Simulated scan of single mutants.
Amino acid sequence: MEHINIRKATKTDIPQLLELMDQYIVDFYHCPRPKGQSVENLVQHLLENPYEGIQFVAETESNHLVGFATLYFTFNTLEAKRMAILYDLFVSPETRGGKIGERLMQTCISYIREHDYSHMIWETAHDNYPAQALYDKLGAKKAVWLNYEIS
Rank of each mutant, 00 (worst) to 15 (best):
D116R: 10
L89Y: 01
D22Y: 08
R33H: 14
G139D: 03
F68Y: 15
E94D: 14
T95S: 08
H119D: 13
P15L: 10
E94G: 10
K35M: 15
L46N: 00
R33Y: 05
L20S: 10
L134Y: 02
E61Y: 03
Y51Q: 12
Y117E: 08
K11M: 12
M1F: 11
L42Y: 08
A69S: 02
Y129N: 06
D22I: 03
I4L: 13
W145Q: 14
Q132C: 01
A140H: 01
E94C: 13
V26K: 04
H30P: 05
Y29V: 07
F28L: 15
C31H: 12
Y51N: 11
L78T: 09
W122P: 04
H3M: 15
M21Y: 01
P32N: 07
I4Y: 07
K8A: 13
D22F: 07
I14T: 10
I109W: 04
H64R: 07
E48Q: 11
M21F: 06
Q23P: 05
I100L: 08
G98T: 00
I25D: 01
E2V: 04
A9R: 00
T77S: 10
S62L: 11
T60E: 04
E102V: 10
C108T: 00
G67Y: 02
I4Q: 08
A131H: 02
Q44C: 12
S38H: 09
R103H: 14
P32A: 04
S62M: 13
L86F: 03
F28R: 02
A143C: 12
T77I: 15
F75G: 10
K141Q: 15
F28H: 08
I6V: 13
E94S: 14
Q55N: 15
M21P: 07
A133H: 07
K35S: 14
P34Q: 05
L134P: 02
L46M: 05
L104Y: 00
F68V: 07
M105H: 00
W122E: 05
I109P: 03
L17W: 01
T70G: 03
K11Q: 14
N41I: 14
Q44S: 13
G97L: 04
L78R: 09
L47E: 01
D136N: 11
G97I: 00
A58W: 03
I100G: 01
E94A: 14
Y24L: 06
E52I: 01
M83F: 12
V26Q: 06
T95P: 04
L104M: 06
G36T: 02
G139S: 03
P15V: 09
E52N: 12
H64Q: 14
F73W: 05
S38E: 09
N147W: 05
K8F: 06
V26D: 08
H115L: 13
K81D: 10
T74P: 09
N5I: 13
I112L: 09
N147A: 12
E40T: 06
P50F: 07
G98M: 12
K81W: 05
L146Q: 10
G97V: 03
K81G: 07
E79T: 09
Y72W: 13
K141F: 13
I6M: 06
Y29D: 09
K11D: 12
C31L: 15
R7T: 04
D127Q: 00
A58V: 01
T74E: 09
L17S: 01
T95H: 14
N128L: 11
W145I: 05
A143P: 06
F75K: 06
I25F: 02
A9L: 04
I54Q: 07
L47G: 04
S92V: 15
